[in-house]
Write a protein that binds this DNA or RNA. Sequence first.
DNA 1: GTCTATATAATGATAGAC
DNA 2: GTCTATCATTATATAGAC
Lengths: 238, 238
Amino acid sequence: MRSPSPDLTTRARIRDAALELFGAQGFSATTVRAIADRADVSAALVIHHFGSKEELRAACDAVIVDEIMGRKSATLADMGSQADLSATMRGWLADMDTFRPSFDYLARMIIDGGEAGQALFDALVDRTEAMIAEGVAAGAMNTPSDLRTTAVVVASYGVMPLLLERHIGRVMGGDGLTLDIVRRLTVPMLEIYTHGLYADDTALAAATAALEGVLDTSRGPHSDKGAGDPNQDPDPPE
Amino acid sequence: MRSPSPDLTTRARIRDAALELFGAQGFSATTVRAIADRADVSAALVIHHFGSKEELRAACDAVIVDEIMGRKSATLADMGSQADLSATMRGWLADMDTFRPSFDYLARMIIDGGEAGQALFDALVDRTEAMIAEGVAAGAMNTPSDLRTTAVVVASYGVMPLLLERHIGRVMGGDGLTLDIVRRLTVPMLEIYTHGLYADDTALAAATAALEGVLDTSRGPHSDKGAGDPNQDPDPPE
DNA sequence: GTCTATATAATGATAGAC
DNA sequence: GTCTATCATTATATAGAC
């Protein structure tokens, strides 16, 4: 992970200032001057080092991707090659004061849907799929009816605390995601992943029956539009 | 819901153009001139009608809040007073071509964390909590160890398709969220909510044991920082 | 490498005619 | 209500001194 030490090169200081502001306010809302101010340099120097605001963003993207892909994971006892997003996030959460900028920036990368964010999400889904397949093979997980789609759902649920950090923190009476709040989230999440929420399978059975034959895996034209029960809610428990 | 008919007042046309662009590009990245172009009016007229770009955003916020709170739900057979976010989203999903702007704008409202977005999320959690409580009372749902936190998790999971629309669509081979993709998501999501993902409760038991006594419901100072097992992952299955 | 000064373009907003 | 023309400000980026 990125070193929190203060003796950075000017270039790195500018990059970190940009990462903070981009993460906190977004790319468009952040001016080169604001970045320069935060890094205690002139606006011209920012451009001098990175060429343009857009290239500065690319440099920030690269930092986050490096952290997640583990290429520079020095502090974490050099855990080596393929650290995943979950492991990185766990490390960040343990020291949110230091890593909230990375956290916020990553959230924006995923939301904004740029190329780097897409690649991260794709990798996350792939890794999740592999992990579920292993869990099933080891008998630790139930066999999903659709492995790939289940991986998409589980991966999406996994990044949820990242994207809704501030809402979750606020609703739970904290300031963003704190370690305490993450702990309080752990058991309820595991309860759902262990016992489910529904007491019986009426909802599941109804959905399975209603969608029987309706689903075309090859994504053909949905000429049967509207045939399904409109009460089949994609986010059922709300 | 907002009328898709073409005979809108100029003011409404400007507002809808703004909603589209704000949703697609974000507030800061959208210029008043771009909005004017899309609405086929002059930039001055945009300001004339709304006073400022910021007030125009507030008008867009109000439109979405109205749609979700059901104040103007005419098309949905005037289902009346308290339509919730889930019902609105279901209606939107059935006609994504028309309502993707609302969808995208709502996602940004929640992510940006402005006051309107906060109010929506808070209302969503409250409604989810009430719904789970009812489900438990009716015997249709398991009793969570922590109702409020479970409501936070379930509500967050519920908005996930909204926030990750494009990623989910892309990974599943579509263009954003289509009706077909929503259908394919339904059963895997219900499987998790019905049977869970884990085959046994080892993970849950371990987390419960590890966090025993560590959690302070009153959110006091966490002087026991670092005492918990760092492998207690908040997003476990990744 | 770092600065000041400045070029150039775009932005939100206004003035005033119609 | 709607426009054209324009203002004042701010934006990114450049030029050139040190």
